[in-house]
Structure formats: structure tokens, C-alpha cells
């Protein structure tokens, strides 16, 4: 992975913060790509408008977070343009494309809830007020993204033939992989950057999902070889096919 070139000079807490913010920003980048690709399938004109706005919102949030990574010596070039598929740290949940409209709704609901839950825990941090304000702004704007998918879940769930419950249950297991179930030491919580530990945030996420739809079922086994720096288990990175769809294509067009 092309980690920040200044990693050697960072404290352990700064490295943890940089890694977690990379994970959140990359999740937003990939989610924006999902909206962009699914956009032509928007049902009504109001859905088109909503998906365009959510895509724009996610790109904006990702770029704001990448810009914040400058605190750790990460350049815009590195964060946005030069990383490859193996460097993207989005959740496994977003690796596989949606199978249907229902699966799309299920996935964006879980992804938006997960990201909002995690970033929301930075809003009250006193260690860095700039980050707290950024987290507050992003969290506030993301509320409408969650409303959108929650509304569609409720609408789809009225139809007895809908697959929405099955889609959420299948994707739910993948989403839980964003948190390690094992009680690892949580440096960002102890340093006061987050107001809750990873274990608490995982619990909050499950409660938020269950407030909309019942996801009770067999226990999800704890991921093997989970790595905090990428918030997933197994090999780092996203599939090449997904990266080709979401990657930044023309560096020169972004320059003034």
C-alpha cells in the first residue's frame, strides 16, 4: 500500500486517526461511485435528483476528508489520484455490485448508517475541533441519505414478494466486518478523538438498523485476520473491476 510518506514521523495515535479517516473517506468515494453507476436506474425524477445530490454529497465529503489528511502529510495527489485498487480502504460491503434495486437500497442503507455511526462519534471530540466541525457537517448532511434509503426500505417491505429483508440480512453480515468483534485496544477512543469505542459503535449501528428492520438471525462469526488500518479482514484493497469504475480517470482535467 502507498501509505503516507510521512508515516514514520507520525505518533501512533496520528497513524490510527489517519488510517480511520482514510477508511471513512474511501467508503464515501466508493459509495459515490455506486450512486453514479446506479443513477440511470433511478425510479422517479425525484429519485434521480436525490441520487445526484447524494453522489455529489459523498464526493464532497470524501474530498473534504482527504484534504484533512493533509494534517498527516498526505497530499491531494496521493489521496485522490495516484492510489491503486489495493490501496482503497472501503468496506467489503461495497465490493460486490447490487443485484437489484432492492439490493441497492439495502446496501446504501447499511453503508450510510455505518459511515454516519463511525464519523458521528468524532463530533464532540475536544482534541481537534476542526475535525469535530467537519464530522458534524458531514453527519448532518448524511441524515437525508439515511432517510432516503429508510423510506425505500419501508416502501419495499410492504410488498410480500419483496426481497428487501433477505438483501439486508445478506449485506448486514458484510457490513459488520467493518468493526472487529474482538475487544482490541481502541487508541482513538482512549485519546478522546471518538466519544465511543469501536465496540460501542458496532452496537449503535446494529440498533440503528434494527430500528428500521429486523435483522435478527444466526450470529455473524467474527472476522479472521481483521486489520484496523483497513477495517476489513483478508487482503487489502477492492476488486480491480470496481476500481476501474470508480477510479479517477483524467488527472489533468482536475487541475486549474
Amino acid at each position: 500500500m502507498t501509505d503516507a510518506t510521512s508515516a514514520g514521523r507520525l505518533s501512533q495515535t496520528d497513524q490510527l486517526l489517519r488510517d480511520e479517516l482514510y477508511c471513512i473517506a474511501d467508503s464515501k468515494l466508493v459509495l459515490a461511485g455506486w450512486y453514479m453507476i446506479v443513477l440511470p436506474n433511478g425510479r422517479a425524477i425525484s429519485d434521480w435528483s436525490a441520487m445526484c445530490a447524494m453522489m455529489q454529497g459523498q464526493y464532497g465529503h470524501a474530498r473534504a476528508l482527504y484534504q484533512y489528511l493533509g494534517h498527516f502529510g498526505v497530499t491531494r495527489e496521493e489521496a485522490e489520484w495516484t492510489r491503486g485498487a489495493a490501496d482503497i480502504r472501503s468496506p467489503k460491503l461495497l465490493d460486490q455490485p447490487p443485484r437489484s434495486w432492492s439490493d441497492f437500497v439495502a446496501t446504501i442503507f447499511l453503508a450510510e448508517q455505518a459511515i454516519s455511526t463511525q464519523l458521528g462519534a468524532y463530533r464532540s471530540n475536544q482534541a481537534d475541533r476542526t475535525l469535530a466541525r467537519l464530522a458534524e457537517k458531514v453527519h448532518k448532511e448524511s441524515r437525508f441519505h439515511v432517510s432516503y434509503s429508510t423510506g425505500w426500505i419501508k416502501a419495499l417491505n410492504k410488498d410480500p414478494s419483496s426481497t428487501i429483508k433477505a438483501d439486508i440480512r445478506r449485506r448486514f453480515a458484510e457490513t459488520l466486518e467493518w468493526w472487529d468483534e474482538n475487544d482490541q485496544p481502541d487508541g482513538l477512543f482512549r485519546a478522546g478523538y471518538r466519544e465511543a469505542s469501536d465496540a460501542t459503535l458496532r452496537k449503535r449501528f446494529i440498533e440503528a438498523v434494527e430500528a428500521t428492520i429486523d435483522v435478527s438471525g444466526p450470529d455473524v462469526p467474527a472476522p479472521v485476520s481483521w486489520q484496523r488500518s483497513i477495517r476489513r479482514s483478508g487482503k487489502p484493497g477492492i476488486p480491480d473491476s470496481l476500481f476501474e469504475l470508480i477510479r479517477f480517470k483524467n488527472h489533468e482535467l482536475a487541475l486549474p
Binding site: 422517479a44 425525484s46 435528483s49 436525490a50 437525508f144 441519505h145 432517510s147 432516503y148 423510506g151
Partner: peptide
Amino acid sequence: SIEAPNAELAEARAWFVYD
């Protein structure tokens, strides 16, 4: 005005359409 099957979807559609 906006058409929606429930308040959550109405809230999101209203916010994004009338922006």
C-alpha cells in the same frame, strides 16, 4: 409538493429536489 409513500422518503425527496 412531493409524492412519496412515507414520511422518510418525502423528507429526503423534498430536501434534494427543492435545494
